[in-house]
C-alpha cells in the first residue's frame, strides 16, 4: 500500500458501493412513487397541501421545529408511539410523497407531530400554544414564539382571530394579540399533518387494541371512522 492511486481507487470503489446501496437503490425502489388510490372510497393519497399550509411548512423549516419534534410514527411494538396515540398506523414513505423538504426529525424533545392535526384541529389552540405553550399545556417545556404574533391596539371591534388569553398572559387593556401571517400558516400546516387513511403497506387494524390504557395526547380512536370519513369527504370535494 505505497501507491497513492491504489488507495484512491480502493476508496473510490468502496464509496461507490455504499453510494449505490444507500442512495441509488432506494431511489430506484421508491423514487418513482406516485399517489396511491385508497379503497374503498377511491381517494388519491396523499394530496398536495393547500397554499397556506404549504407556507406553514416553510415556517416550520425556517424555525427548525424539526429539531425537537419528529414526524414519524414508529411501527407497532417498537417504542410506544401507538400507545401514546401519536397515530393510527405507522408512518410510511407514501405519507411524505409531497414533502419538500421531508422533515422527519431526529429528536423527541417534544411529542411526535405526524398526526398532530388529528389531535388538535383548532387554529386557536395552536395560536395560544405557539404564543405561550404553558397556556395550553401546563408543564410544557416548549419555548414561546412571540415573534409570530403581534400585539396591537384594538380598533373598533376585537379581531375574531385575537387570542383568548387569560391571567398573566392577557395583553394590557385595550390591546389584543393577533397571529401574524406566519402563525396562521404554521397552524394550517400543523392541522394538515394527519394520516388517517389505511394504506396497503400500513393498514390500520380493524379492532383497536382495548388493553392499552390511553394516556395523554391520545387520539380518540373510536372516532377514527368518522374522522376518516370527514377527511375523505374533504379530499373528494
Amino acid at each position: 500500500m505505497n501507491r497513492g492511486p491504489l488507495i484512491f481507487l480502493g476508496v473510490f470503489v468502496a464509496m461507490a458501493f455504499s453510494w449505490y446501496g444507500m442512495i441509488v437503490s432506494p431511489q430506484r425502489q421508491i423514487g418513482g412513487q406516485q399517489q396511491a388510490t385508497v379503497e374503498p372510497a377511491g381517494i388519491r393519497y396523499p394530496v398536495p397541501r393547500p397554499g397556506l399550509a404549504q407556507r406553514g411548512a416553510e415556517v416550520y423549516r425556517a424555525n427548525g421545529c424539526g429539531y425537537c419534534h419528529t414526524q414519524q410514527v414508529r411501527p407497532r411494538g417498537y417504542g410506544s408511539d401507538f400507545e401514546r396515540g401519536w397515530g393510527l398506523r405507522m408512518s410510511v414513505a407514501q405519507d411524505f410523497l409531497f414533502e419538500q423538504p421531508a422533515m422527519l426529525g431526529q429528536l423527541r424533545i417534544g411529542p411526535d407531530l405526524a398526526n398532530v392535526g388529528m389531535r388538535w384541529n383548532d387554529p386557536q389552540w395552536h395560536y395560544r400554544h405557539l404564543y405561550n405553550p404553558k397556556s395550553t399545556v401546563e408543564k410544557s417545556t416548549m419555548p414561546q414564539f412571540p415573534f409570530l404574533f403581534e400585539m396591537r391596539v384594538i380598533q373598533g371591534d376585537r379581531s375574531p382571530e385575537a387570542l383568548d388569553l387569560t391571567g398573566e398572559l392577557a395583553p394590557p387593556k385595550g390591546y389584543e394579540v393577533i397571529p401574524k401571517q406566519e402563525a396562521r400558516a404554521l397552524a394550517a400546516y400543523l392541522i394538515s399533518l394527519q394520516s388517517p387513511l389505511s394504506l396497503f403497506e400500513a393498514p390500520i387494524p380493524a379492532e383497536p387494541k382495548k388493553d392499552a390504557e390511553p394516556s395523554t395526547n391520545t387520539v380518540a380512536v373510536s372516532s377514527r371512522n368518522s374522522q376518516m370519513l370527514g377527511l375523505g369527504e374533504s379530499l373528494t370535494q
Binding site: M22, I23, I30, G31, A93, E99, A102
Partner: peptide, 11 residues
C-alpha cells in the same frame, strides 16, 4: 435536484 419524500431523509 431534490429526490422525493423520505428519500431525502435517507440521503
Amino acid at each position: 435536484h431534490p429526490v422525493r419524500g423520505t428519500l431525502q431523509a435517507v440521503v
